[in-house]
Design a protein around this nucleic acid. Structure first.
Lengths: 338, 338
DNA sequence: TTGAAAGCGTTACCAC
DNA sequence: GTGGTAACGCTTTCAA
């Protein structure tokens, strides 16, 4: 059947052409309600022939439901180009996959939070059924406030006791412990932590490393290399710190894979070999870790799985359930960098 | 001023509370039309106090305009997990940045084209002002047909003579030539091309390599390593092909950075060193290329710039202009892999 | 099984 | 400067 691209703009025109009411056309095309089979077929054929596509905006307005989920990436003040960051990219990719599976679309918004309304502007815009936030950034307080009055909200990030907003994230302290223990098992004695040491996620990872190092009686050897999260910033931070450190580490836990990459590059620039001179373990389990040379040993947060959980929880919250957050068990993936 | 989260759902309620009409509230809040300054201030204060956010869906329906752009990633039949592919990820990230700059949101849809309607379903849904498509996949014909009747469409991909749909992409043949010439200058005599050799983009890159190899009198040495695009598939393809080849190349042009990564891993698995035994040059200029060890020499398509161009062109097309496609001048980035 | 009509929440035109 | 009101295109009662 050839398609006729006369501009059929709406149900009404189809209805007139078919000699029925708009109500019947709507029922025929959506499959809701009872319609005579023959009428339905006639209408369907006509719609296809005329290349008709329903106006989803009008449908959404009427149904007060959109089958769309908003994904928000809050950017701290310092880090501007974050949206092309490998972590956010990986996460949005996984979320897009999981949402597509359920027939949901993804409305992506990059936000620089200026006030407390950055979530609600989208949440209450009628364009989305729920909101996913990737990372708590410096917005932990804001998220707590928002979660109090807006339910279909799920956040990727850490858990604090008494936390109100629903979050999915890994057991960061445990993950930090795994990374440190692995380095010690590999024979490292001078362990360093590279990355931010504050915040719900990095703080816990750092704490886990500290615990294990202390337990192993290596407490004096713990070296702090506080860097930015972002790749290039981390690289130059690390370069300076390593040049200045009185004690060169032989094992480094990076707070994130992205930071680990910066660390490895800095080590290379200083003439150290990985893993021969220094072993490096990352945190996240980004797909690119596998592609590096040497491939990156990392604490895998199972981001694809996590994205699936976020979407599940969000669907349940959209349905009215008060689904609680979930902690993911991190898994150590040993590769060439250790 | 404290915010009062009584549920103000629409303009009408604000209007009643303020003792004015919805029309005035609308004018006051949007800044369109003339409103008494004092009334405007009163209404604005009230709206903020009540935590009112306009329903964007209703606005979009009324204005027939959404400030949203659809981004479509057509997936060929074979390659299912493509959305988390580094290339698409990088591209969507750059597009999101460029769109955010202009106050546009991004509606991301992963599509497996089953019929010719995959673009129009979104384009005519009223949810977007225009559509960006990343990659022509096997949909070149479909895109040609669609472009005939839907103008605000810009595609990332190759150019063919007489092509109708507006595309942004690099001069693939020229880029292929640059890559091959670089290898020859580095002393390579047995040049191989790894990747797909068909289609508007890969075909041209391959052709460019062939030309240069022939011009250098190395025609007999050109080795074809036809592989899939996707990373893991490329890896195992290459592994088999290199094992079987009677002539081991000393320089490989990969059709894409992702393929180059597969090539380098395969070479490593076979005991070859890069660049000492074999030099490898990629194509794309993905950010991750820089992170690899050795860092990847690549033909940079300047994807961030390209994303900006796509958005520019789309905006002009949305405005009604018949903006033509653009070819990007590729730039060779020499790094450690050659 | 079908149709008429009332919204969904805005904006924009036309009076006043 | 402001208010009434008709769209925007769809879904969904309620009657017939």
């Amino acid at each position: 059947m050839t398609t006729d691209y006369t501009k059929v703009r709406n149900l009404k025109e189809i209805a007139e052409l078919a000699g029925v009411s708009t109500a019947t056309v709507s029922r025929a095309l959506t499959g809701t309600g009872r319609v005579n089979d023959e009428t339905r077929a006639r209408i369907a054929a006509l719609a296809q022939k005329l290349g008709y596509h329903p106006n989803i905006v009008a449908r959404n307005l009427r149904k007060q439901k959109t089958s769309t989920v908003g994904v928000l990436v809050p950017l701290g003040h310092e880090d501007i180009q974050h949206l092309s960051d490998p972590f956010f990219n990986a996460m949005t990719g996984f979320l897009a996959d999981a949402l597509a599976e359920l027939g949901y679309d993804l409305l992506l918004s990059r936000v620089i939070p200026r006030d407390e309304l950055w979530v609600e502007r989208l949440a209450n815009s009628g364009r989305v059924d729920g909101v996913l936030v990737i990372g708590q950034s410096n917005q932990f307080g804001a998220l707590e406030a928002i979660a109090r009055r807006y339910r279909p909200l799920v956040v990727w990030g850490g858990h604090y006791p008494g936390q109100i907003h629903c979050a999915v994230g890994s057991q960061n302290r445990k993950g930090g412990r795994m990374a440190a223990r692995h380095l010690i098992e590999r024979g490292c004695r001078r362990i360093a932590f590279a990355g931010p040491t504050e915040g719900p996620e990095f703080g816990e990872r750092f704490a886990g490393v500290c615990e294990v190092v202390a337990e192993a009686g290596l407490g004096d050897g713990l070296i702090r290399l506080p860097t930015h999260f972002e790749l290039n910033a981390a690289y130059s931070d690390i370069l300076d710190l390593l040049r200045a450190t009185p004690l060169m580490p032989d094992g480094i836990v990076a707070g994130a894979d992205v930071s680990a990459i910066g660390v490895i590059r800095a080590l290379g620039a200083l003439g150290y070999r990985v893993p021969d001179d220094v072993r490096v373990v990352g945190y996240d389990g980004l797909p690119i870790g596998e592609l590096l040379t040497p491939p990156l040993t990392t604490v895998d947060q199972q981001l694809r799985h996590g994205a699936g959980l976020m979407v599940d929880l969000l669907m349940r919250r959209i349905a009215g359930e008060d689904a609680p957050g979930i902690l993911i068990d991190p898994v150590l993936i040993v590769r060439g960098s250790t």
